[in-house]
Amino acid sequence: MPPTLEVRNLRTHFFTRAGVVKAVDDVSFAVDRGKVLGLVGESGSGKSVTGFSILGLVDPPGRIAGGSILFQGQDLAGLSEEEMRRLRGNRIAMIFQDPMMTLNPVLRIDTQMIETVLAHAKVSREEARQRARDALGQVGIPSPEERLRAYPHQFSGGMRQRVAIAIALLHKPDLIVADEPTTALDVTIQGQILAEAQKLCAESGTALIWITHDLSVVAGLADDIAVMYAGKVVEEGPVTQVLDAPLHPYTVGLIGSVPSRNHRGEPLRQIPGMTPSLLNLPAGCAFRARCPRAEARCAEPPPMAEYRPGRFARCIHPYEEAAAA
């Protein structure tokens, strides 16, 4: 059986007046039933655009400029807008950082959820309501029957996010793309949502792509991890291997910057410089201006290579052994 989702050499570019922004430029990864892929990177690295591309939500001046997105073996890039709409919210769902991207502020929760059920399933209104109630209960919302009659503004941020997740769950999708869904939430509430996400994958076999800038969340949640930098995946592999023995100098730098990876009170190991603009990015490795291992060859674009079984890195000079991260 093919994996639930396989993205191959995806390119999503924005053709702006100032030039071509290669927001996603040769991204590949796969995620299987019941598994969690953590897609990590700093702001502007192309995580959200990757997510939007999978859902077919890229608007002009952006468009998918190459590659394929295979969902259960079927290429989504070839589907019509109508076919895509049928998959969205049904077999594939997205959860956004801001739950109000999903929720309509002027409609009661029950109206929104029932409409979502009826859009993809031939059931009675009463049954749709029942499903909505169950979904709210599933994400840990107390007294779901009462809560159904509320409006989004009557919920706290964490509750709103749980309602958005409940809506994503309504049709028991095979794939969920979650884009920084807990970034705006407090840790005690984040913990509740991460617990729901884990339960979901384990119980219903949903494949989950969890987009975040927070390596610590991915460490606890994901099976595999793909690290993005300047529109490309620069390292990929099982979470434990990537975090314990990173190959790519950027991954090493990123892990080293996390305060708990350093001795209390001592200077943090920092990556010098800042992320380059994606507009007119020079050829070669995009990390080379900040890389302690850069050499002349790095002016050529480094290919993604498998350095150990299942361990990929886009670097011609990776760390061989466990680097001091």
Binding site: G191, Q192, L194, G220
Partner: peptide, 12 residues
Amino acid sequence: PRIEARKRAFAG
């Protein structure tokens, strides 16, 4: 969340 933790059970 701690970067040292692997596949932990969250509770909230």
